[in-house]
Each structure stands twice: as structure tokens, then as C-alpha cells.
Design a protein around this nucleic acid. Structure first.
Lengths: 199, 199
DNA sequence: GTCTATATCTTGATAGAC
DNA sequence: GTCTATCAAGATATAGAC
């Protein structure tokens, strides 16, 4: 994305990326096989290596960056309409709780499980997840700053809200309950409120 | 633990559990091989199946429950001395940031990566992680309640603080930075402060 | 109980026919 | 470009000598 390189829109290729995204968020990176991805995509096994000569690592990186951009769009669409940053944050968490249940407790965040797996084992993929997280934090920081949070505190506030959401997804998946995400919504509102008050 | 069943204190067995704990927190459950664990434990491969006839799943479950109990002890020791719950929370996050760096950004939480991997793929292990998270939340909830947080809000507050910590570990590992954890400390203090004020 | 060798399966990846 | 067959290496797990 960052270098503006054109990405093929070939339909088979797109199905492979989509299948990879869905499987990675449920079974993780090491827990998902290339054959499994090919089957889920309805594509012959060889096609994966035709479109991704770099193999699993290349596919993994593209899944991370693509779904990261999609997710940024979702967060933007969900929060942008609100003038009240506290209400926007609380409602976003409520929506996230709904998504968690709809996915039958697969991870609503498409890169979280992979991020944990690769953080200490694959430098290229670790960097990709880091850049995606950063893009979300930067958007939210600007959003909060525009809403009245002091510039110096905006990034810390945004990072904490993202962390709270990711952690709540983790607890909610483990417990197969939306309760941790709903509770986190209350806490997120408190974080934003405190930041707006300048502590 | 919960059923009081005696656990062997055989030294080889202990080394296997310890090696599994260290490898799982860096490479995850599916990303770690049994041979790798045996080698790291300095134990012959066959010993793993001698002590864990249930194979990888049995070892995984014991690692989760054992390290969960150890971690509960750490959290207790870290927070119990404080009268001021806000200060206790802030200092615990500061300590966690230090641990993250000391581990060279392996996960300070020994079960988080595994929890994400197994949530949708292994029901027995998912339940084990859920019970461990719950034990932490229950301790913290009682701790906050005793410090003046209304009973009705104590569990939500505790869950949110744990979620915030876990999410901050995730972002910190991805970025190879302690900054997300330090920022989360400020936010966690705000959450506890708001709960003490009854919102 | 310790340790080695091996069975069986699955993985990521490649070669080559069509 | 599509698809199949196959590779070498890894996995989990087992058998059995000592």
C-alpha cells in the first residue's frame, strides 16, 4: 500500500486473500495450511503459488495489510458521523460486541491472532502488523484531537482505546461472551472523558 | 488445581512444563513443536509422552493452568501492599512495561497468544484460558471492591483493566515498544478513578 | 523411567502436463 | 493460467530396547 504498487484484481487472487483472511482470524497463521486456504477459496493448490510466489509469508503480509485498510475504513465510517467523541467511542464498542457474537466468537479484529503469533517469530509480518495498528491509532488520535483532546494526550488516548478493544476481544473470545466488550465500552468512555477533561 | 489433584513434582516433568511455557509465549501453541519442547527441556523426546500421555493438548492445558496460577500470584503480590487502588494499578502497568522490555518483547502474559489461537479451534484449551482469565478478574474485582468501587461495577472495572493490559501487550509487542503499555497505565488509572467516583 | 528409532500424517513448496 | 502429482521436511505419536 505504502509504495503505491498496483495490486491485481484477478478474481481468483481475491478469493484466496479473502479465504486467508477468514481462516487466519479463526485458526491463526501457523494453524492455517495453504491447502486449507486453497480449498476454502475454491482454487487449485497451484494457483496460490502462481499469485503468491513468495508463498505463505507473502500471502500473510497481504492479508494483514489489506484487512488492516478495510478495518480502518470501518472504524472511520463508524466514528466520523459523531460530534461527541465519548458517545462515538461507546457506540463503537457496542457495535463491536455485536460483531463478536455474529462471528460466533471468531476474532472481530482480522490481524490480532496473527500479530501475537508473529511478534517474536517473523520480522516482516511483525512490521506489517505494527504499521496497521499504527494507522488505526493515528486516525483515532486525530479524531480525538479534533474533538478537544490535547494534542499531547491524543495519541496515548487513541492507543489505549485500541488496546482496550483488542484485549476485550481476547477475553470475550475466551469466555465466549460479549460481556467483556460491553464492559470495556464503559471503560473506554471513561478514558476519553478523562482525556477531554485534561486528566 | 481446582480439584486438588496432586501434580507430580518430578524434576524432568517440571522442566518440560517450564520449557513449554517459554516456547508457547514466544511462538504460540501451533507454532511450537513437541521435539522443540523436549530439546529446550533437556529431556528425551519420549519423556514428554511418558509424563503427558494425553500429548500436546494435555501439556498445553497444564501450561495454561500452571502459569495462570503463577501469574495470579504475581498480580496479587504486586497490588496487595497498596492502599491506593489507583496508584497500585498505575504502578502495576509500569512494572509490566519493564517486564515487556526485559523479555525482549515476548509476551509478558504467558497465555495470551495461546488463548487467541485456541479460542475457535480447541474447546478444552479455550475453557482453560477462560478460567484463568476469570481467576485474575475475580481477584482484581474483589481488590477494587474492597478499595471502594461499588460491587456492581467492580467486576466490569477489573475486566477492563485486564483487557487494557492484554491489548497493550499486543500493541507493544507488535511495535517493539513499551510506549503502549505506559500509555495504558494512564488510561487504567483513569478507569479505576472513574469507578471509584461511581462513574 | 530413560531414551532411540520409527510409523504415519501433514506441512510448505515445486515440477510439469495440459 | 489451471490443475495434479510429488517432494523433502516437519509434525504428533508410538513401539520397544535398555
Amino acid at each position: 500500500m505504502s509504495d503505491g504498487k498496483a495490486i491485481s484484481t484477478h478474481e481468483t487472487r481475491q478469493r484466496i486473500v479473502k479465504a486467508g483472511t477468514e481462516l487466519f482470524r479463526r485458526s491463526g497463521y501457523t494453524g492455517t495450511g495453504m491447502k486449507q486456504i486453497a480449498e476454502a477459496a475454491g482454487a487449485p493448490f497451484g494457483s496460490i503459488y502462481h499469485f503468491f510466489p513468495g508463498g505463505k509469508a507473502q500471502l500473510g503480509e497481504e492479508v494483514i495489510r489489506t484487512s488492516g485498510a478495510v478495518y480502518l475504513g470501518l472504524v472511520t465510517a463508524l466514528t466520523a458521523p459523531y460530534e461527541d467523541r465519548v458517545a462515538a467511542t461507546a457506540d463503537a464498542f457496542a457495535a463491536a460486541a455485536g460483531t463478536l457474537a455474529e462471528l460466533d466468537f471468531a476474532d472481530p479484529c482480522p490481524i490480532a491472532t496473527v500479530a501475537m503469533e508473529v511478534a517474536s517469530t517473523n520480522e516482516a509480518l511483525r512490521q506489517a502488523t505494527s504499521e496497521v495498528f499504527d494507522s488505526w491509532i493515528e486516525y483515532l488520535a486525530a479524531y480525538y484531537a479534533q474533538g478537544g483532546v490535547p494534542e499531547s494526550a491524543a495519541r496515548e488516548t487513541a492507543g489505549s482505546v485500541i488496546a482496550l478493544l483488542e484485549g476485550a476481544f481476547m477475553l470475550g473470545r475466551a469466555a465466549r461472551s460479549t460481556e467483556p466488550v460491553r464492559a470495556a465500552g464503559t471503560a473506554a468512555a471513561a478514558i476519553v472523558r478523562a482525556a477531554l477533561a485534561g486528566q
